[in-house]
Nucleic acid binder design. Structure first.
Lengths: 142, 142
DNA sequence: GGATGTACTTTACACCGCAAAGTAACTCCG
DNA sequence: CGGAGTTACTTTGCGGTGTAAAGTACATCC
């Protein structure tokens, strides 16, 4: 049932693939942003720019940019105001942000579980292999 | 104890930070590569290019590039040879690759655990908040 | 023999994380 | 008062990179 009449070359992968992890949203799947979202998940009342900066050990510019991205993606809301006379930015995860992050986390758990299963499987079937595989005709190490 | 004599501006974050996740290696922390490494973890004897392509639902070019990156990082070995008269590429995770990936996975578990804790904490303390936070003087939604 | 398929590699580019520099307003000190 | 330093950010610049598209080389089918 491979469709006939593909005009030009088309290497589009069939969806699926046991280890494709398509649900790992790009916007979320990022070191720094993972930290930010995790922090915010635990603080429904929101966190200040400075608090986030500390928690995630980010530079100002870095954090600024990531917040902007998360905001544009609709994952967080940003409130700008003043505390006394200094500017203060408050970030809060949105309802949508929470659900999307939770979906992402489910997929992450799947990664961890798959890896654990894989490691287990490998350990139980074959002793850790070294040396060259011999079932290839002409073989070269790189 | 903040060091005196910082000549110019320096926003370098102190290492640490509860949600910094510094152990999430860049090379590994990538959707596609996560799939590849997980696949390889479960197959100590290695996997063929085509098998990986299927498993991870990647295009040829894409997979080629990622394998190259992983190889340059020392995480996988690549063997090139022929099966019959067609070229066949075999990838195998290296010993170092396995340990680095396992370290990465530990950090990933930490992310998941932290997020779970955060969600739990949020649920138990405050009812999900909506509306504007009122403890900022001049507030504006964006 | 050329059209199509397999098994890749190479190229091209748009996007993006991150550090450094910039802005603006306040505070401290001599 | 002035300027040096701090806070709380935003903007800019650039080097790195994921991905689609095109390219290569060989084999097979009609």
């Amino acid at each position: 049932m491979t469709s006939r009449a593909r005009k030009r070359r088309d290497t589009t992968p069939e969806p699926g693939g046991r280890f494709a992890y398509g649900r790992l949203e790009r916007v979320i799947h990022e070191k720094a942003r993972l930290g930010i979202l995790t922090s915010l998940l635990g603080a429904p009342e929101g966190l200040l720019f400075t608090e986030l900066k500390e928690l995630c050990a980010l530079t100002d510019g870095n954090l600024s940019r990531h917040i902007q991205v998360l905001q544009e993606a609709g994952l967080v809301e940003v409130w700008k105001g003043f505390r006394g006379n200094r500017p203060q930015t408050l970030c809060r995860i949105t309802a949508e942000g929470r659900t999307r992050f939770e979906q992402y986390l489910e997929e992450l758990e799947r990664v961890v579980a798959d890896a654990a299963r894989a490691a287990e499987h490998a350990r139980s079937t074959a002793p850790p292999r070294t040396g060259s595989p011999r079932w290839l005709d002409g073989l070269s190490p790189a």
